[in-house]
Design a protein around this nucleic acid. Sequence first.
RNA 1: GGGCGCAUAGCUCAGUUGGUUAGAGCGCUACAUUCACAUUGUAGAGGUCAUAGGUUCAAGUCCUAUUGCGCCCACCA
Length: 896
Amino acid sequence: MKSSLKQYNPQQTEDAWYRYWSENSLFAAHPNSSKEPFTIVIPPPNVTGILHMGHALNNTIQDILIRYHRMKQKECLWMPGTDHAGIATQNVVEKTIAKEGIKRQDLGREKFIERVWQWKEEYGSTIIRQLKKLGSSCDWSRIRFTMDQEYSETVKYVFIALWNKGLIYRDNKVINWCPRCQTALSDEEAPHHQVEGHLYYLRYPLNDDPSHYLVVATTRPETMLGDTAVAVNPKDKRYKKLIGATILLPLMNREIKIIADPMVDMKFGTGAVKVTPAHDPNDYVLGKKHFLEFINVMHPDARMNESAGKYQNMDRFQAREVILEDLKEKQLLERTEAHVLSAGHCYRCHTIIEPYLSWQWFVKMKPLAKPAIEAVKKGKIKFYPRRWTKVYLNWMENIQDWCISRQIWWGHRIPLWYCFDCKKEVFASATQPDACRACGSKNLIQDENVLDTWFSSWLWPFATFYWPKLKEKSPRGTLPEEDLKYFYPTHVLVTAPEIIFFWVARMIMAGLEFMGDIPFRDVYIHGTVRDIEGKKMSKSLGNVINPLEIINEYGACALRFSLISITSQGQDVYLSKERFEQGRNFANKIWNASRFIITHLNRCVISTDLCVFFQKEQLSLANRWILSRFYSLLKAVEKNLAQYRFNEAANLLYGFFWHEFCDWYLEIIKPDIADRQNQIVMYKVLEKFLRILHPYMPFVTEEIWQKLCVPAAPSQEPLSIMTQTWPHIQEQIIDKKVEKQAENLFAIISQIRNMRANLEIPLENSVTVSLFPHTKTHAMLVVQNKRILQTLAKISSLMILEKNQKPSATLSAVTKGIDLYLHFGGIIDIAKEKGKIETKIAQVKKSISSKEQRLKNHDFLKKAPKEVVEKETESKRTLEDELKRLETIKEDIAGT
RNA sequence: GGGCGCAUAGCUCAGUUGGUUAGAGCGCUACAUUCACAUUGUAGAGGUCAUAGGUUCAAGUCCUAUUGCGCCCACCA
């Protein structure tokens, strides 16, 4: 396809400008005492990641904030990096080598890790390249990886610090075990989802009298092989006399006791529950309490083990079927009913979790949580939207110890050493210790486990600055002490709700524990990206819209703008491909309007100072209006950005440019475009608008800005819109009265156009219009702006009718010349209108006086909180303004 | 079991501490193509703001209850 001047072509501009920005180091940030810092750390995407819409949204928001504050002349650091994503990455590489027919065990630990590094070198920067396509202005010279050498040092340092504080312990507990990944998982990594299953009622014969049995209900019958008791509620009359008796466990023929515990719910199932202490977290608790035996019946891959008797080596689900068959045969399966249960699933591979007894390392969380709760309660850290505060606090207050050991190879190996000889001492050490402290043996071995990925991610806001080696120059030549002092705490963390617990909460704890300060002030939680039917976008559902495809087709600016404009604060985002057309069309509109202005621009006007010019010149209504509107827009955009209302700001920018600047302003000045005043205003508004749009649409604004502002001669300094100053709000230019006047004028034009359309008068036919204005103000407005009316409504002559000249018909087409009679404001019964206004005035007056009285009331002033009083005062002021406005209208009507 | 969110135009959704005539995009109808842009312009149709009460001079907005949908957390075997 031939590329046409008439259409903006993002492919021709985006990569080139990104290169220009990078080559001129415009993203780089350094401690600078003359500037205020502004810092964001990126939520590091997984090295296995490829850019999806969630990333696109997340990073667009961060880039908007960074670019905005950079233009506000702050020293802006957006710290980039990637996460080693232990399980996820290991899985990917395992799949890769599986194609060669090998398992990781065939390679051995060292060789396998080598392969993972190889994979990382080859594919690990994919997501980074994609973030660049999006326009992300990170300081790439600072890029970090959660497994790079120095980061690993930080992780070990932190582990040892917690160890020395006694916050790390080992325990043999029932934890979440993924049989596919063959590792322990934290509670957060094993989310519960509903599963359609069955409730099986099993008959357990009494030992003394095998003809009688106790019926227990279970959803996982295969675990019965590991049962070591049956429990009933001590208050349960049905079973009271059986407490203490024994049962002969079917299939295994093991004697097990009937115990009593109040934990048992009498109403569920039969009120009797089989107890499998090694395969259920509740049963584990019962097992501990009643000193039961813990029998593990499964291998780590969820095949039954040697304790499972004849079921050995069957998969857990296969064993389930066979066991049910066997029980049925023995008439021990009483019945089966459908039952919806909620089961933990591995967050990486979605396999159903097996609660599994094993030795794992844990972090005691309560002491870490305490200050993290305080920080949020005291408002040092704020969540946007606010409601997440409660979710955070609720989790924090009920925090459980964190299982941090993983039985995989890819990750930070736990820096603990065991003495092979005396088996007494466990050492925490960043390097291999020389000898055992207890027996002096040199025969030491390191713990086989690696740490949970999130055990490195939670240090991200300061580990990325090479903490804790403060006084040592980092590999990139910076001094961590200086960087941290300047850039930490960071300002805002932008993330999705699903990782509040994984990451946000833990970063707050780590920041407070190790830096003695919060890691960020604001947490902006955006919504989850879903498809148009509300489903989460995922590859397996096949409903993915690939952001890179959108970038190729419509451009990064279109993607960014569309994504932002449909993301209201904290709501989920529903996407379909058509949504991106809006962004593409907007980029194109800007492109064409700018092209129009540039071709008609007299470059002499560029150097004019807008404020001086504004004070000195008598400006036309259109010029005063567009300037006022621009600064009103600027004010609103800033306000919305400060409150993280990105979509509001985006929609305001869109509406201003398209409907006010293009549809009205440019159309008005078109006939007089060479006029100096119009030239100046048109240029200034476009130039400033490009600047405030830049954070949203960095490429298209740069492309146009360069054409508009930068002379052909090459300059010494790199010139870019991204380093320009954000415009200052000029309050003196904002004039609400002017805005209202222009709106009135536009309303007249629209009505004339409406009549023309109704009467099917083509635009090439000029018409004569007789106006019957309701108020003096309207009459003045029309007289003064006759030229605009003539241009935009195609009027050949205009008559203003007096009161008594009222035409018989309100609007009619007469004779060949065609006259339009128009009541401005439509057909209005003036008497009725007056009545309405009077009622309204009376209402408002009453309201003001009631507020006045309240504000005079001593009791109220004494008792009411300060904000309430302020609010009352403020609302009284609003009412007074409203009253003034109403009275003007009343006068106006009276004047006709 | 606990917590949170949503319900506004045909569709997808905005609507800020209550305050003029409830908005946008898409879709729909009619007209317009030498004029920056058909990825366009002009005009139009389309709303009992889920339901029922309440607070207020004033409620889409605040309170209470109800209905429907979605999400998160929790040890219902």
